[in-house]
Nucleic acid binder design. Sequence first.
DNA 1: GAAACTACATACCGCTTAGTACGTTGTAAA
DNA 2: TTTACAACGTACTAAGCGGTATGTAGTTTC
Lengths: 207, 207
Amino acid sequence: MGNSKNTTKKIRDLKKSRQEILDAAFWEVFTRGFQGVSVDDIVKKTTLTKGAFYHQFPTKMDLGYALVDEVIKPMTYRRWIDPLQKYENPLEGILLLIKNLIGKAKPQELRYGCPLNNLMQEMAPIDKGFKERLEASLLYWIDGMEQELKRAKKSGYVRDDVNIRQVAHFVVMTHEGFYGMLKALDDPKAFNALYDSLKRYFETLKP
Amino acid sequence: MGNSKNTTKKIRDLKKSRQEILDAAFWEVFTRGFQGVSVDDIVKKTTLTKGAFYHQFPTKMDLGYALVDEVIKPMTYRRWIDPLQKYENPLEGILLLIKNLIGKAKPQELRYGCPLNNLMQEMAPIDKGFKERLEASLLYWIDGMEQELKRAKKSGYVRDDVNIRQVAHFVVMTHEGFYGMLKALDDPKAFNALYDSLKRYFETLKP
DNA sequence: GAAACTACATACCGCTTAGTACGTTGTAAA
DNA sequence: TTTACAACGTACTAAGCGGTATGTAGTTTC
């Protein structure tokens, strides 16, 4: 066992290998933190070795940067912004997304928090390169939220005098706050606090 | 230089040494994270050595636990709950506290986030001992907030049908969310989003 | 199909880490 | 003043870390 010679010819694909490393790194970093994970940990979760890793990324930091730009940033947008376009009233969409993606999720899926928020807490204050990319990802999310709120305003679901940029900031803020609290609490009541309070807040935005 | 013999008799005080270590550890962990700081880093910031450290704490983890129980937990309460008692209307107090402790703070003081939130993000998912203590600290904060909201209700500043436990959850949630966002943003506009939105939310709680 | 290059695999290195072993000095009791 | 112990200081270790040097096997080019 274990000494089965691999006689099959190994194919080589730079991009696929890169993606395999990024996928493995995402889960390891997501569950254990960037500083808590070693390069060896990551390659162990792939079919590759350290040589492949450093052929793709000059340093561990560069992997972290790629993780933010290529995985976490688009993932966050696909998860929280793209689905909103299906709803005629974006405010309803936001609440429904929260209900579906958080309220109906298993505690196990939630207890590692939000990938973007995790790295923001851990890496933004101690590394400039991380901070720049995390800021860009966060603003990308907030910008998307603002666009949807703009649409809500045009459709008459939000009053004209409302500062939608500020609302976008606040909505994202509550998301991050929720995920943060849940890590220590894993109490479903925290979800109700988020959902009901945000709903109550949204009421004040209606014409 | 550097070889000045220390001829003064060194005094010994177990409790004072413990406090010195805890104080130094707090700042190092606050600014660089628990996993990002070594025991050697911490003792270098004190007048003591590694021997003293391990005489006080069996492991590095035990120091972390003490940090939560003896420093961060009471600090959070003194900072966010105790001052509320001075205000007749706790809702006003909460907003004023935010304005004073966040709005008037220098960016430098804010960019390392919230000590409690930092450790929650970093350590709660990967260590049970941390999680238990962080949860206790967070609930201590929320409980205090709930007490103040109870007082607000009795004084007629909050409607009777409002679920104050949920409001307490939400208020703490927005705090943590704000600190989290600020780490990547250091944009003063994030503060306005917190302050104005929370104020707007509070309006819905009034009779 | 040989040459040239790319995409890895393997073995290793210097450094840092948490933790320990043991010596030494301050301190309180007798 | 001696005794006994507590409160450290110093030197060390084994393991893990990020990164590198070098060899080797697929792949492309001509």
